[in-house]
Design a protein around this nucleic acid. Structure first.
Length: 437
RNA sequence: CGGAGUGUAGUGUAACGGCUAACAUUCCUGUUUUGGGAACAGGCGACUCUGGGUUCGAAUCCCAGCACUCCGACCA
């Protein structure tokens, strides 16, 4: 019965998440390297490049290689799950943008928005690569929403955004092309907008919790924007951050330096002495948009009485690529990266030492048993010396390491070590499997 | 966009204006080795960022451009 249940569980897992992917390191086309390029000084870029997670194309432009992509996809998966959990509907909009549409909201002019990548169309006219997607989505919604019965709507996408930054910096933390999850809420009035807004806000907190940076991430009051005293942003404490924030540990909130005034502190009922100055990176932002876009682009609905109203909107962004960098900046050590369980490119790093027949047999069988159990495993089956393999393992940062060597095979055990700990433990295969649950 | 710095094998560095641009590492061949980036032997790999200039002679000096990094400004 137990076996049947386990089998069923795995089948379900495969059904829902696609096949379990495992990999032999001897076949992985990326290599690790001892030294990072001299001109790459940010910690996240150095480690990502050394471990073969990314390749730098240009300043602020990175390609994601297999290990990097798997990690990034795990971040995306977590965000997607939390957006779906609050009723978000995923779509995928174009990167190429309609100039006419953006002119209607006065956001095409270089004097108003200066970080467009624009290009001439051979057929005549001009297009630009999407910096954000309020305009196109509002237009899409104007074809779909016409009644109060159609609201609210939460729509989101994952897409590369393009911003012609004057200066890219901090590795993947601030690029010219980067992955962004952008969600937009469409509500019938201010009151229901606030409910929708708070739902997304709650989902964001869950996302950062699952990403392993929850304790370092603070909801931070920032410059107000359109119709409130403050806007809120999510700031994660790290020395590599660009923002200065003032943290209230007790209340788990913070103020951005841009709103750090006596007047605002009074409004929030906080004393200056309770706050600590810290550097942080903005990992998420949430905005009240009011009716700015719906007014400009004619997104309206009819209420119960048949009266027409503009739709009230909100927009909410999280950058998965920036999060990847933030996790490295906050959690890595001098030996390499350390991935939280749900983010790690693999669940386990199986490291085989030596090439004795029995040892190879044991490790191969364990590899296949792990796959059968639905564990995603990176199997270091290369014939290298232990030091090099351990160094690679620490650099890549999978949270759990299983070592199989002549020594362990003799005892019919596996050496289990967590990336964050210094001591290892000998376990039977069953015990080792059970800690992965 | 203002300021500063740096461009030499895949990577990290060296080379007084003067020999075939050197060393380490990576990579390839082989032998030996196997619990924290081993040892030995042999080998591949560079138009010294690009374009001009000075010079008998330029990786080296000068000018221009390009790229990258850092500080600042900017970041809906």
């Amino acid at each position: 019965m137990k076996r049947f249940c386990t089998g069923l569980f795995i089948l379900l897992k495969i059904f829902f998440y696609g096949s379990i992917v495992c990999m032999k390191q001897s076949q992985l086309f990326t290599k690790t390297r001892k030294e990072a390029p001299a001109d790459e000084t940010s910690k996240n870029a150095q480690l990502l490049i050394r471990a073969g997670f990314v390749h730098k194309e240009l300043a602020g432009v990175y390609s994601y290689l297999p290990l990097g992509l798997r990690t990034l996809n795990n971040i995306v998966k977590i965000i997607r799950e939390e957006m779906n959990a609050i009723g978000g509907q995923e779509l995928f909009m174009s990167a190429l943008q309609d100039k006419e549409l953006w002119s209607r909201t006065d956001r095409w002019d270089d004097a108003k928005v200066d970080n467009w990548f624009k290009t001439e169309l051979k057929s005549g006219g001009e297009t630009g690569l999407g910096i954000t997607h309020e305009e196109p989505l509002t237009r899409i919604m104007s074809e779909q929403i016409s009644s109060y019965r159609d609201l609210p709507v939460y729509a989101y996408q994952f897409q590369n955004k393009f911003r012609n930054e004057l200066r890219a910096k901090s590795g993947v933390m601030r690029g010219k092309e980067f992955l962004m999850k952008d969600l937009y809420t469409f509500s019938k009035d201010e009151e229901s907008h606030m409910q929708d807004y708070n739902k997304v806000r709650g989902a964001y907190l869950k996302v950062f919790e699952r990403l392993g940076i929850g304790d370092k991430t603070f909801i931070t009051f920032a410059d107000g924007g359109i119709f409130s005293d403050f806007s809120e942003e999510f700031q994660t404490l790290t020395e590599s951050g660009e923002d200065i924030i003032y943290v209230h540990e007790g209340k788990k909130i913070a103020l951005n330096r841009e709103v750090y005034t006596d007047e605002n502190l009074a409004k929030l009922g906080i004393n200056r002495e309770e706050l600590v100055e810290k550097k942080a990176v903005e990992v998420g932002n949430i905005f009240h948009l009011g009716t700015r876009f719906s007014d400009a682009l004619g997104l309206k609905y009819k209420d119960e009485q048949g009266n027409e109203h503009p739709v009230v909107m909100g927009s909410y962004g999280i950058g998965p690529t920036r999060l990847l960098g933030t996790i490295i900046e906050t959690l890595s050590d001098e030996r390499g990266m350390i991935w939280p369980k749900e983010v790690s490119p693999f669940h386990v790093h199986l490291v085989r030492l030596g090439v004795n027949e029995k040892t190879v047999e044991f490790a191969d069988k364990l590899y296949s048993d792990l796959q059968k159990a639905g564990v995603e495993v990176l199997y270091d089956d290369r014939d290298l010396r232990p030091g090099e393999k351990f160094a690679d393992s620490d650099l890549i940062g999978i949270p759990v390491r299983f070592v199989v060597s002549d020594k362990t095979v003799e005892q019919n055990k596996i050496e289990v070590k967590y990336r964050t700990k210094t001591d290892a433990e000998m376990m039977s295969e069953d015990e080792a499997l059970s800690i992965l649950k």
